[in-house]
């Protein structure tokens, strides 16, 4: 099994090295004439006002949290799906229960308006 990951390891080295190589070549070939106007933040020609790092709405966090819950539960279901053919009816009942709890969470988030984007 580890030999397969040997291939993945070499792939990882190349997948990282190739874009780095591209940037190095571009750095060698490209002109370098920086000036303050060119390097100013792009805001349609208007001077930037205030700090870039403004506070964000809690809404993003809420979506991310609902995502985390669904992501974790789905990942748990993958080994179940692989083994499902070798399992009896109880596996169906248990997974159905699992999915229904997930569904309840979705319905709750929906009813509370956590899924509305304002």
């Amino acid at each position: 099994m580890l030999s397969k990951y040997g291939f993945i390891g070499i792939l990882a080295v190349v997948a990282f090295g190739f874009p780095v190589l591209g940037l190095v070549v571009a750095w060698l070939l490209s002109p370098k004439k920086p000036n303050p106007i060119k390097q100013s933040t792009y805001e349609c020609g208007v001077e930037t006002i205030g700090d870039t790092w403004v506070q964000f709405r809690a809404q993003y966090y809420l979506f991310a949290l609902v995502f985390v819950v669904f992501d974790i539960e789905t990942v748990f279901l993958y080994p179940w799906a692989v083994a499902y053919g070798q399992l009896g009816l109880f596996a169906l009942v248990e997974a159905a229960l699992f999915v229904l709890i997930l569904f309840a969470g979705l319905v709750y988030a929906w009813r509370k308006g956590a899924l509305e984007w304002q």
Binding site: Y61, L65, I101, Y108
Partner: peptide, 14 residues
């Protein structure tokens, strides 16, 4: 229980 726990976490956050 893990699925219930995750559900409770989400409800709390909402």
């Amino acid at each position: 229980v893990a699925s219930v726990l995750l559900l409770v976490g989400m409800v709390g956050a909402i």
